[in-house]
């Protein structure tokens, strides 16, 4: 299949997908902004934008898959993809770093300062006299009302096991693809995204529990803010990762990839390990400590 792999670097034809993507992104962003401003059309424009972006991704990735399967990509192109994916994951690391940075800042600096630490004696005395700095907190004004925190040793611990197991199953799948064992590959890739969706489902249940039983919401002061923003963005990334794994699974079922040429699989596997590592940090610093 890849026998006629070219020696020249593959420079694609003009493509209409990027401009379609821009139009999609534009409607999504305008729609979301209008939705937040309570304009009636906002939600619909947002959904139109999502639909255009999904179409764009299907079409664009479809082109890339077809080109890859036709052997258009030589090793140098493969290397470009690898580097591109690594740097993309690095940018994602920095995105999460902003939220973890916010978590560490409030826990170690701003909450103690509100309690009078350092040279902030008068901040506490004059503004928030009864406030005792502690973590978790919803702030001196008890924003969002009384709430209970999420215990790490229930669902979160189970979710940790699920994600770690999925990290192991995708590694088995990777060895299988390299050894040409397609049956094992298909089974373990299926297990991986099944575990991924199970994780997302349990996170959804945990959110339901938090909102309905614990009165723990996004508006529960800075504990609720950091809790839901970090777990929420992580959950979005797991969802995206699980969808990507599903797409790769459909490709392996169709017989795509070779033992020595399967960048699409590896890229998604890297991404999956990335969301796994973020979860471990999250479990330690958001749920546990």
């Amino acid at each position: 299949m890849l026998a006629k792999q070219g020696t020249a670097y593959y420079v694609p034809h003009g493509s209409h997908w990027p401009i379609v993507g821009s139009v999609g992104l534009f409607s999504l962003m305008i729609g979301a902004s209008s939705w937040l401003n309570e304009a009636a059309f906002g939600k619909y424009l947002f959904l139109v934008g999502v639909a255009i972006l999904v179409t764009m991704m299907a079409g664009w990735f479809g082109n890339v898959i077809a080109e890859s399967e036709s052997g258009a990509y030589n090793l140098q192109v493969d290397k470009s993809f690898r580097m591109g994916m690594s740097w993309f994951i690095f940018s994602e690391v920095m995105f999460f770093a902003a939220f973890f940075g916010a978590l560490f800042y409030v826990r170690n600096l701003s909450v103690p300062w509100l309690g009078g630490a350092g040279n902030n004696f008068f901040t506490n005395l004059l503004n928030w006299e009864t406030f005792q700095a502690a973590w978790p907190t919803n702030g001196p004004a008890n924003v969002g009302g009384d709430y209970e925190t999420m215990s790490p040793w229930g669902l979160p611990a189970i979710n940790t096991l699920i994600l770690l197991t999925s990290g192991a199953t995708i590694t088995v799948a990777h060895h299988a693809i390299k050894e040409g064992n397609r049956r094992l590959l298909n089974i373990f890739l299926f297990l991986t995204f099944a575990l991924g969706f199970l994780f997302v489902g349990l996170q959804g249940y945990e959110y339901y529990h938090a909102y309905n039983d614990l009165n723990l919401t996004m508006a529960s002061g800075v504990y609720g803010s950091t809790f839901f923003m970090i777990t929420g963005f992580h959950g979005m990334h797991v969802t995206v990762g699980a969808i990507m794994l599903t797409v790769i699974w459909f490709r392996t079922m169709k017989g795509h990839f070779l033992p020595e040429h399967h960048f699409g699989f590896e890229a998604v596997a890297w991404y999956w390990h990335f969301v796994d590592v973020v979860w471990l940090l999250l479990f330690i610093f958001v749920y546990w400590l």
Binding site: L36, A102, Y105, V106, L109, S110, V111, W113, L114, N127, W128, T137, N138, G139, P140, A141, V143, G144, T217, M218, A219, G221, V222, Y223, G224, S225, T226, F228, M229
Partner: peptide, 18 residues
């Protein structure tokens, strides 16, 4: 954005933010 529209308090001292 979430401070403005979703009730988070990252940048609001009343909720423990800054």
């Amino acid at each position: 954005l979430t401070d403005q529209y979703f009730g988070t308090t990252f940048f609001n001292a009343a909720g423990g933010g800054d």
